[in-house]
């Protein structure tokens, strides 16, 4: 669905990458998912900006609403810039009974993120203002035997407690121990 043909704030480099990606997916079923995934992966902050979505809509002739529907349906797509490091806390039943909620609260405190009360106990996806860390919750990693499970930069850590979690954070350079 054409919106702002010819007008875009995207750099020429991003535009040509998008054009190439769209062309390589031409005629394939489910092309949109692949295009969006490539666009997000290319972004240094691993997210899809409004400008990118509008550009993709324009070039693929897909309705804006439909693209928005897809990117909000799948948890893998981000609409906000992500931190350098991503920490995902499992909030599935097994991890919950093993205290993942405390881990979540602890991380919030450590990273200086606001407590959102009951509402923020289940579904979280926030990034620290300095852009260093993204904290998110996951429904289940399928690693329930290792509960509670925390994923740091795509690596799964099992049987976590507040001390081991803090140590992982320090490894990432948090708390001033390493630059």
């Amino acid at each position: 669905m054409a919106t702002m043909t010819g007008q875009t704030a995207l750099s020429l480099e991003v535009q040509s990458f998008a054009d190439k990606t769209i062309a390589s997916h031409q005629g394939k079923p489910g092309a949109l998912l692949g295009i969006l995934e490539s666009m997000q992966e290319r972004n240094p902050h691993k997210y899809l900006s409004t400008e990118v979505l509008e550009y993709v809509a324009d070039k693929t002739d897909l309705p804006l609403a439909q693209i928005y529907s897809v990117v909000t349906f799948y948890a893998l797509f981000n609409l906000e810039p992500q931190g350098e490091h991503t920490i995902s806390i499992c909030r599935g039943t097994a991890c919950h009974t093993r205290g993942s909620r405390n881990l979540l609260q602890r991380l919030r405190l450590e990273l200086g993120l606001p407590d959102m009360g009951e509402e923020g106990a289940d579904k979280v996806c926030v990034t620290t203002p300095d852009g260093k860390y993204s904290l998110r919750t996951v429904a289940c990693f399928g690693q329930c035997a290792l509960a509670p499970v925390v994923e740091v930069d795509h690596v799964i850590y099992g049987h976590m407690n507040e001390q081991t979690l803090k140590r992982e954070l320090e490894h990432l350079g948090h708390g001033g121990k390493r630059a």
Binding site: M1, M4, L53, P63, L64, A65, Q66, I67, Y68, F73
Partner: peptide, 29 residues
């Protein structure tokens, strides 16, 4: 044939949205 509306998110968080979840009055389509 305008496809202004679609459903965002999923489950209990689903919402009907216009274009990129912009206010309806700003929906270009």
């Amino acid at each position: 044939g305008a496809h202004v509306w679609d459903v965002s998110s999923r489950g209990i968080h689903s919402l009907v949205v216009s274009d990129m979840a912009k206010p309806w009055g700003e929906a270009v389509n």
